[in-house]
Design a protein around this nucleic acid. Structure first.
Lengths: 198, 198
DNA sequence: GTACAATCGGAGTTTCCGCTCCGCATCCGA
DNA sequence: TCGGATGCGGAGCGGAAACTCCGATTGTAC
């Protein structure tokens, strides 16, 4: 991450500017949505527009870089929790934390959706990372009996994106989260069986 | 809905064109997302751009009209199911139907989100309609013991929006739907749940 | 049938935004 | 310290999309 795509080492100031731009982009996109203008990012970063476009030749590539950074941070958080004492608590805690973040930062939701569908270039590389990290978190929780056994990382990621979306819009995210958690726990039987039993 | 905002009766052709524009807008926004151009809508409707802007002075107002139409249709569907034989089936069937629609029509998701937050002018009038219709559906299902008793229409609407969003992006919508349904059912109260709730 | 008003159509205007270009500033190796 | 290479800044280009305006057209009352 310290070189350009052509392999040349970057000058010190260029490296600094690249970081400034990335941080500013993250702020701006989080606050105003992904349709915020590149000029706004440049202003926030305290650099010229030309600088932004030199480091990220396309607005799409800038967005992608921001999303990748978000996803990497998510993956790191998930990995940190992989060795927690209580697997169930680790899994649900991670879930809740992501949703809480998404409530204010719309970009997180987009990032999660992106990770689910990928099709993008760079996210196609970190997307699986997130899914893998969530996967181990999920597996441990399942082995501990805290989470139902009949779902995989894809379903969790999709649900995460959906609940995050809901939390970002509506106010009462706690209740929705509770419903999702209950749905994720081991069920007393299949849907039909449960219905027949009552 | 047959007069302009100034109260004058509309000419017959104007009325026809207005309907054509609305239908075309619904199609276009469903297919290409809400960022589709007004010109595209006009082309699809077979009218000039000027006509579109006369009936809907702003793109936002056009979008709003489309969303209101969607919400009204949703509310009508919900009301029709309010007298179904099996309240649980009615509730979950409605839920599944909405999600299935959202998988292809992104606009539905936006409409639901809009209904949850409103803040808009016209949706502020039909949003409550949807919520009320869902409310009766929910209440009957709750009284029949098919849905947990500790949630209200707001939570259902939010969850509906979130799951619809997830279904529209990721592929495996069935599994996510299953998780949501299980979360919506009355909870038997596993040891963990009982411990967590108290 | 006629006249008038309402409506239509679409070229043109305005605004906004992604992106380029190139003279100037800054860095860094010798 | 000095010179070449690298990076910076921001005016400006190109195009897309929302919205306006007015002559042509069409519906409707009499």
């Amino acid at each position: 991450m310290t070189t350009t795509s052509s392999g040349k080492p970057l000058r010190a100031d260029a490296l600094r500017n690249r970081a400034k731009v990335l941080a500013a982009a993250e702020d701006v996109f989080a606050a105003q949505g992904t349709s915020a203008s590149t000029e706004e990012v440049a202003r926030r970063a305290g650099v010229g527009i030309g600088t932004v476009f030199r480091h990220f030749p396309t607005k799409e590539s800038l967005l992608e870089a921001v999303l990748v950074a978000l996803l990497e941070r998510l993956a790191a958080q998930a990995r940190d929790l992989a060795s927690a004492a209580d697997p169930g608590e680790a899994f649900f805690g991670f879930f809740a934390r992501v949703v809480a973040q998404a409530a204010t930062k719309q970009a997180v939701t987009d990032a999660l959706a992106e990770a689910g569908v990928d099709a993008r270039e760079a996210t196609g590389r970190t997307g699986p990372d997130v899914k893998a990290a969530i996967g181990t978190l999920l597996e441990r929780a399942q082995r501990a009996g805290a989470v139902r056994a009949d779902i995989g990382p894809s379903e969790v990621t999709a649900l995460l994106a959906g609940i995050s979306y809901a939390a970002g819009r509506a106010g009462g995210s706690d209740d929705v989260l509770r419903i999702a958690f209950d749905g994720l726990r081991p069920q007393g039987g299949t849907a039909d069986q449960a219905a027949a039993r009552r």
